[in-house]
């Protein structure tokens, strides 16, 4: 009963996210464009799709709050108490990696990137090549978020200054951009924003805040956050590397 009630509340939140989108589009359709919708567009399918988005997102977020988040937080606390840095870092990597693989926005963008890469002639025009590209892209991003969380945990343990590390990250991005094929640059930059949405942020923040409050002299507000900042810079670096080094190697073998 309680679950059902909070599910309804979550649906209201998802609906609130969607409402401005629908309102702005409706306004532009009725007041600015004023043309009949193209006949290829199935409006009923679209409405069903929107219902799927609202219900699906509510189920997803509520399900995370019931299952993954409490267990993940308990585990994070257990590893902090355990006090073994190796296990803590291993867990941090696995957490960042696993949660990114299940990130809905990343699944969506990787799929689009793959079909655009096929159309643009970046990879071969086969279904296997397209699927392989989308899968590899997601794996690269997932590994990068895992590494970002490891670096973030190390930073909290050692007390390294955050803004200095972010600036170094930016400089690496700038340098890598110069050697990466232009076709991969846009995808790389966008993958940084995609990782920090529904699932990775709460899990990783829980780890950071738990860690920062367990270590003396660390401020959970200031130090707990840094993990997210890394999680949005590291994917850019890794996907740029993938574009400049990984993709040429891969296309020689599979794509």
């Amino acid at each position: 009963m309680e679950i059902a009630l909070s599910l309804v509340r979550q649906m209201r939140d998802s609906l609130r996210d969607l409402t401005p989108v629908v309102l702005v589009m409706a306004f532009f359709q009725l007041a600015v464009i004023r043309q009949p919708l193209p006949p290829t567009l199935d409006v009923i399918d679209m409405v069903i799709g929107l219902v799927g988005v609202v219900v699906g997102l509510a189920l997803f977020i509520k399900g995370l709050a019931l299952g993954l988040f409490p267990v993940g937080e308990n585990l994070a606390r257990a590893f902090v108490i355990k006090g073994s840095p190796v296990w803590l870092l291993l867990f941090a990597f696995a957490l960042g990696f696993g949660s990114t693989v299940a990130e809905p926005a990343l699944i969506a963008v990787a799929g689009r990137a793959a079909s655009v890469a096929v159309e643009g002639g970046l990879i071969r025009h086969t279904d296997t090549a397209q699927l392989a590209f989308a899968f590899t892209l997601r794996m690269v991003v997932a590994v990068s978020v895992g590494s970002a969380v490891v670096v973030g945990v190390l930073r909290i343990l050692k007390g390294w200054p955050l803004h200095l590390m972010i600036i170094i990250g930016y400089v690496i991005v700038l340098l890598l951009t110069l050697i990466t094929p232009a076709a991969m640059v846009g995808i790389a930059y966008d993958s940084g924003g995609v990782t920090t949405s529904t699932i990775t942020v709460p899990l990783v923040t829980a780890l950071g805040v738990g860690l920062a409050s367990a270590i003396k002299g660390r401020n959970p507000m200031l130090d707990g956050f840094g993990l997210i900042a890394f999680a949005s810079v590291m994917p850019i670096i890794f996907v740029l590397l993938f574009g400049s080094i990984g993709l040429p190697l891969l296309s020689a073998v599979a794509l």
């Binding site: 799709g49 799927g52 988005v53 219900v55 699906g56 997102l57 509510a58 189920l59 997803f60 977020i61 509520k62 399900g63 995370l64 019931l66 299952g67 993954l68 299940a102 809905p104 699944i107 969506a108």
Partner: peptide, 11 residues
């Protein structure tokens, strides 16, 4: 719920 929700969302 995560499984069903993610599938519905992607559709």
């Amino acid at each position: 719920m995560v499984w069903v929700g993610l599938s519905l969302f992607l559709v």
